[in-house]
């Protein structure tokens, strides 16, 4: 464990909690892409199946359980409890254009052709594009609530910090996973436009406008 990975995980946890609390407290999922949240639930489910097969550390296990629990709770709030506030018209990204190519790629390019490894690879590739429906929805509505921008900032920051974690681990531990690194770079690049606006627009004053 290093400072980049720890702050990255905490940033990721913060994003997940921010979103869940925002929906729960405001009793509304307006402006939130349910499709992205479903994709994240799939990402965690396919990546954390090793919860059933291997124990790495209490921290690792706890975080995985929290991530999976919060992801499904968020999906439940959006599609069940507060479905009346779900803005389906603007959440119109065709996720099959993400899932099918990612599924195909994970079968073609992976470290090992075993079910668990292919599912892990699928989750790594899917996570790198899972935010697209949310960014697409914001571009369609033309704005985002301030709290949603903080959620996106923390979510984007987490994988950026992981990039530094991988540099650290390559230098100090000789650890190197090309699949995770390439997907992590793609994932972080997708946030660049948003990061620029988040930093330059000083959103604390008005809603995010493209």
């Amino acid at each position: 464990m290093n400072v980049f990975r720890l702050t990255g995980d905490l940033s990721h946890l913060a994003a997940i909690i921010i979103l869940l609390l925002k929906i729960w407290k405001s009793r509304s999922c307006a402006g939130i892409s349910g499709k992205s949240q479903i994709l994240f639930a799939i990402v965690f489910t396919t990546r954390y199946l090793d919860l059933l097969t291997s124990f790495i550390s209490l921290y690792n296990t706890c975080m995985k359980v929290i991530y999976i629990g919060c992801a499904y709770a968020t999906v439940y709030l959006i599609y069940a409890k507060f479905r009346a506030t779900y803005d389906g018209n603007h959440d119109s990204f065709r996720v099959e254009f993400l899932v099918v190519p990612v599924g195909g790629l994970s079968v073609l390019i992976n470290h090992d052709f075993s079910p668990l490894e292919i599912l892990w690879t699928f989750s790594i590739y899917l996570e790198s594009v899972a935010i697209l429906p949310q960014l697409f929805m914001i571009s369609k509505t033309g704005e985002a609530e301030t709290i949603t921008t903080h959620y996106l900032f923390c979510l984007g920051l987490y994988r950026a910090l992981y990039l530094f974690n991988w540099i650290w681990r390559f230098y100090f531990e000789g650890f190197f996973d090309m699949i995770a690194i390439v997907a992590g770079v793609v994932q972080t690049v997708l946030y660049c436009d948003f990061f620029y606006l988040y930093v330059t627009k000083g959103w604390f004053s008005r809603p995010y406008r493209l």
């Binding site: 992981y162 000789g174 650890f175 190197f176």
Partner: peptide, 10 residues
């Protein structure tokens, strides 16, 4: 050599 991924990351 470079280790294979121990999958110890979240």
């Amino acid at each position: 050599g470079l280790d294979i991924n121990p999958k110890d990351e979240l």
